[in-house]
Amino acid sequence: MVNLIWAFMAIIGIVYAMFNGTMDNVNQALFESANEAVTLSIGLISVLVFWLGLMRIAEKAGLLRSLTTLFKPLVTRLFPEIPKDHPAMGYILSNFTANLFGLGNAATPMGIKAMEEMKKLSGSDHASRSMITFLVINTSSLTLIPTTVIAIRMQYDSSAPTEIVGTTILATCVTTISAIIVDRLFYMRRVRKNKS
């Protein structure tokens, strides 16, 4: 699926440019975005090194396990495939916590660690059920305080920059809950398909 989407985006773009005389823009976009991707990846090094280092200490100190114990009832329901005391749980929870506080920088390294642990559990290069649930919750965004948006609103002299916090939290809740429900429906469909 992702192969098709990836190829089609480029194919459609190039073919479209042939008929609309925008080939110059395509060339420019090509090299600018490649540059941007390298800058972004290199920029990720600082964040990844720092948070993975700190998280390793937290893990060794048993803090991840305490976090898991705290939220056990919730996460075991969301991720029935993951054994209760597995390190994946700790990383999933740290990722969710970081997201809730708007620490996007910290959330990514912990999320990647969580994926790694889940891959160890499934042992294949196919997305496992828990991985899909985890990512779908992430894509629906868990932010409580949308700091970037508030900053933009302040920049354009909003009379109440934080006014949208309430609606954002409400919309986030709806999206996350629907994401979990849709995820469950698709999982049930997969199970039914495999049976027949």
């Binding site: 994926m115 991985m131 999982y187």
Partner: peptide, 27 residues
């Protein structure tokens, strides 16, 4: 999806993209 699946080398995304996009639409 690109970052998380890419970082750990998952080649088959399963229903992840479909579910994600449906959730976006609901959002």
């Amino acid at each position: 999806l690109t970052v998380y699946f890419g970082a750990v080398g998952i080649r088959r995304m399963g229903d992840a993209l479909k579910v994600g996009l449906i959730a976006d639409f609901i959002g």
